[in-house]
């Protein structure tokens, strides 16, 4: 080893130390130290369980034993078993319900945005169901729908005889609709508050100017409110559809998933905890995740198509801006020349 090489080593060490002592390196070190704990927590409690779930989905196992490798059998079972894949049909009721829920929320938010006396009270009343936990909502509606109790009594006030009232939770033609009603009841207020928040951000002068120009309520809604809240509508729809695919509390508490009311989650819970088929339940979870991702991507594409005009407007505006900038630059260059 030459003398030159021997002398360069301590110099390298010194430069590394100097680099570490520099302000930039210190900032990076502090950043990494702060990020370490949340990233570790995220990995341990979110990504690691997910990785384990993917691994379990290829095994035939219970919670306690190691299980045996079965490959894709669990996934094939998910698509072949009527009780599992058929339960996704129940989710269609909840999807339909979520659309109704959003329409109602948009309607009531629009009513409130056109000044109404006591709107804070109506808002509080309609948001209140969202504050009650899902299990309690289940118990409230179990009693509400029981034959001869609250709902039948209310219908009785309007002259409907008890004998004519259907069995809300036992009749397989309507029990899913009744259960979806509980979800709509619970979440409409929350959606309404989100819509209202977006509508409030619209400048009041726009409404005033529109009414001075003779625009009616419908025109104000169509041309001012709707374009201003399209982002919130898309967000609410994505949340509602993914929520409807993973509906659990109403059918679990009210009917325990019996009489054709078992949603995908209720069946998954039964398979994992009662039948102890953890591998199959994990495969169900992965399939549901794939379905939710597909639905979200589909919705995004759909809304890109629906709101194409707005996007085109933005593109045209951006193009014009770029053209103006280029013209200014060319003018400046000419001036310099």
């Amino acid at each position: 080893m030459s003398n030159q090489q021997l002398s360069s080593k301590p110099q390298e060490k010194q430069t590394l130390l100097n680099k570490l002592r520099s302000g930039k390196a210190q900032r990076v070190l502090v950043m990494l130290t702060f990020m370490l704990v949340p990233l570790l927590l995220l990995f341990v409690f979110t990504y690691l369980p997910f990785i384990k779930m993917v691994q379990f989905s290829f095994y035939n196992r219970t919670y306690l034993d190691e299980g045996t490798w079965v490959g894709l059998k669990n996934y094939i079972d998910v698509f072949q078993r009527d009780d599992i894949f058929g339960s996704l049909a129940v989710s269609l009721y909840y999807m339909g319900g979520s659309v109704v829920q959003l329409a109602l929320a948009l309607f009531f938010a629009s009513l409130m945005v056109f000044k109404a006396k006591g709107s804070a009270i109506y808002k509080a009343c309609m948001f209140f169901p969202y504050l009650i936990c899902g299990i309690a909502v289940g118990f409230i509606f179990k009693f509400f729908y029981a034959h001869g109790y609250v709902l039948d009594s209310i219908l009785g006030l309007f002259g409907v005889a008890l004998e004519d009232c259907p069995l809300w939770l036992q009749d397989m033609r309507i029990n899913n609709i009744a259960l979806v009603g509980t979800s709509v009841w619970r979440y409409t207020g929350q959606n309404m508050v989100l819509f209202l928040g977006a509508m409030m951000s619209v400048d009041n002068e726009l409404y005033e100017a529109a009414s001075l120009d003779g625009a009616g309520r419908w025109q104000q809604f169509k041309y001012i409110i709707l374009p201003s809240i399209k982002t919130i509508i898309v967000l609410n729809l994505i949340l509602s559809i993914s929520g409807s695919l993973s509906a659990f509390e109403p059918p679990y508490v009210i009917t325990n998933g019996t009489m054709g009311t078992g949603t995908y989650f209720v069946i998954m819970n039964r398979i994992a905890h009662e039948n102890q088929k953890v591998g199959l339940a994990c495969a169900m979870a992965i399939v549901l995740l794939a379905i939710i991702i597909l639905c979200t991507v589909g919705q995004n594409l759909f809304f890109k198509y629906v709101f194409k005009d707005g996007a085109e407007d933005d593109a045209v505006r951006a193009q014009r801006k770029a053209e103006r900038k280029a013209a200014r630059l060319a003018k400046a260059k000419k001036g310099v020349a």
């Binding site: 109602l104 009531f108 009513l111 409130m112 109404a116 709107s119 009270i121 109506y122 009343c125 309609m126 209140f128 169901p129 009650i132 409230i140 509606f141 009693f143 509400f144 609250v150 209310i154 009841w185 409409t188 207020g189």
Partner: peptide, 14 residues
């Protein structure tokens, strides 16, 4: 608005 508020609070009041 009054109707919707009543629908929202009736089950809880009961």
């Amino acid at each position: 608005l009054i109707g919707a508020s009543l629908v929202a609070v009736t089950p809880v009041i009961v």
